[in-house]
Design a protein around this nucleic acid. Structure first.
Lengths: 200, 200
DNA sequence: CGTTGCTTTGACCAGTTGGTCAAATATTGC
DNA sequence: GCAATATTTGACCAACTGGTCAAAGCAACG
């Protein structure tokens, strides 16, 4: 997407996307201004618009890039692996993403909360198909007696909800837990929860 | 808050708050306009501003009203009740709120994701104290051997995350599950999950 | 009926917003 | 060093934003 171009183009496009992530993830699309993004990227507004044709273009570029990273871990679920370990590894990976890429998580959350006007099709298409596949795998595991029977959709939702909570509601989590880092204990909790829920 | 006044005042104030909930929960504070709220409330912009002094005032009124309803179920946790039933009843109540008041949930989510600029103090004060109390109760139950030992903070976060997910990410949940109503199966899943996690 | 106070509105304002454009400035390849 | 190209900028614009205000409409009470 942002491949071609001179060094300076690459540098500025990257700076814009990073700044855009900062701003959009905090204020949502409508709540953000080009000027905010430009300033944070160290550019003037017309200069930013030399690299991206519009505010919308920056936002959709971010969203497209994000969606790839978002769907990828789900694809890594291996039906031939150990069921409990596979699911716990997936959850752990999602939790790591919340810890290390919280802005991406919040950008996504903002978009979904606002009704997913730009990625509704991806949700109903690619994501839905992917979850259906995963659902089959989980059901297979359950039928083979390798995990407790669970509703696979809600299991996936639960993993998403819990892991993303630590990114999206970070400020609330920290307000409640104080100075303790939430992620260490969160990982143990998640581990325990899934093991308890899935072990036969 | 909106008690005094004539019938017409009450009617219009209520209409404004309802419209404000609609708009703010979808677009966040900065992404919403007074005009949107006014139109949705069936009023002209100056007329709306006759009842509320500013956009901010509508928003904070909503937030204040919301916070009460939000904290109340937590207070209802009874340390003398049956531990598993108490926690499951709390989770069920939160899930019901997600089902019947999704906009409230999304308004809250928007505010938190954007850094809780207006309710940071409540989070660090009242909410934190409340969760600390609940945490003591849960720890007490665990020490008495009435539930499995769990990290009480993360247990509470898990209940919040999972239940609110069905309101905040409603569009994603429905995109994936299709025409099936998520809430019936979600309730069973939540029930099963908590029982599995907490039963000794 | 008329007056008093509540309600509604059109016109308006200053600041912000997304976006344009021509001109100025840097960079690059020769 | 110079021409071609890429980058940056100040000035600008129309639309929109939150908010004001004086005047008009309306209800109710005597």
């Amino acid at each position: 997407m942002a491949k071609s171009g001179t060094r300076i183009q690459k540098k500025n496009q990257a700076a814009i996307l990073e700044a855009g992530l900062d701003v959009f993830s905090q204020f949502g699309f409508r709540g953000s201004t080009i000027d905010q993004v430009a300033t944070k990227a160290g550019l003037s507004k017309p200069n930013l618009l030399y690299y991206f044709p519009s505010k919308e273009a920056i936002y959709t570029a971010l969203l497209a890039q994000l969606l790839e990273d978002w769907l990828e871990p789900l694809k890594a679920l291996d039906r031939d692996g150990d069921p409990v370990e596979e699911l716990m590894a997936y959850a752990k990976r999602k939790l790591d993403m919340s810890q290390h890429y919280p802005k991406e998580s919040r950008l996504f959350a903002n978009e979904i909360i606002q009704g997913a006007p730009r990625i509704g099709d991806v949700l109903k298409g690619e994501l839905r198909a992917l979850v259906e596949e995963v659902s089959d795998v989980i059901n297979g595991w359950a039928e083979a007696g390798r995990i407790r029977p669970v509703n696979p959709y809600h299991l996936v939702f639960t993993i998403w909800a819990v892991t993303q909570h630590y990114a999206d509601f970070d400020v609330q989590v920290r307000a409640i837990m104080g100075d303790v880092d939430p992620f260490d204990s969160a990982e143990r909790h998640l581990d325990d929860m899934l093991r308890q829920m899935l072990s036969v």
